[in-house]
């Protein structure tokens, strides 16, 4: 394709990068049309939609942090989390009944997982809430698969050469939750104190858990 874009504009360039962060106006119109039709036909009420949005907005990464902290202190819980993350989340009072299957990925000194959805923006919303805008950006989605170490470095995350970086693409029915490594110097800490070290990005894999400040 020509590098000169001044001669003519392609309004329908099939090769244009997908996934602009701003919703395109035609999709906003489509969403409104479908929503109004669902309400008019009695499939959903406006109240149902409002409640769902409220429920979604009530979910925050703090729930994921509690789950990770419990896994750090309780090996039996961790085993259950790794075997069935939805059931383990339910144990912690997180309602995942409407969620796709959730799979926990444990970061270790040998292997660091970082999650991306190259096709759209699949994310463990039931546990972490709404994904950050950058997670949905075409730049994150494209670059994480092409140059993950560089992307991680831009997030301030540098890993030893000997650590395998595994990019996990959520292409289908799984939602992935990263369990970061427990930081050194936290021996004997309570779950609440530990949970405060578990940031959202550490559960996506773009960051590590925070280290304790003395």
């Amino acid at each position: 394709m020509s590098g000169d874009h001044h001669d003519h504009l392609h309004t329908h360039d099939d090769h244009a990068p997908v996934g602009a962060t701003e919703p395109r106006p035609e999709y906003a119109r489509l969403e409104r049309a479908v929503r109004e039709l669902l309400i008019a036909k009695g499939v959903l009420t406006a109240e149902d939609i409002r409640k769902q949005i409220e429920l979604m907005d009530s979910r925050t990464p703090a729930m994921g942090a509690k789950i990770v902290a419990r896994a750090w202190v309780d090996p039996a819980f961790k085993a259950r989390l790794m075997a069935n993350a939805k059931a383990a989340a339910d144990e912690m009072g997180v309602d995942t009944s409407n969620s796709a299957t959730v799979v926990a990925l444990e970061n270790t000194p040998e292997r660091h997982h970082v999650v991306v959805c190259t096709l759209c923006s699949c994310y463990p919303k039931a546990i972490l809430g709404v994904p950050p805008a950058w997670y949905k950006s075409s730049a994150y989605r494209a670059r994480t698969v092409k140059e993950p170490r560089k992307v991680l470095a831009e997030f301030g995350t540098s890993l030893p050469e000997g650590t395998e970086i595994r990019v996990v693409d959520s292409t289908a029915d799984m939602r992935y939750l990263v369990v970061p490594m427990r930081p050194a110097g936290t021996e004997g800490w309570s779950e609440d104190r530990l949970a405060a070290l578990v940031g959202r990005d550490s559960m996506i894999g773009t960051a590590l858990a925070d280290t304790p400040k003395n």
């Binding site: 698969v145 395998e164 970086i165 693409d169």
Partner: peptide, 13 residues
């Protein structure tokens, strides 16, 4: 690309 010790997974039917 420089992809030493890097893997990638995709969930495929």
């Amino acid at each position: 690309t420089n992809a030493h010790n890097e893997t990638m997974t995709a969930d495929l039917y």
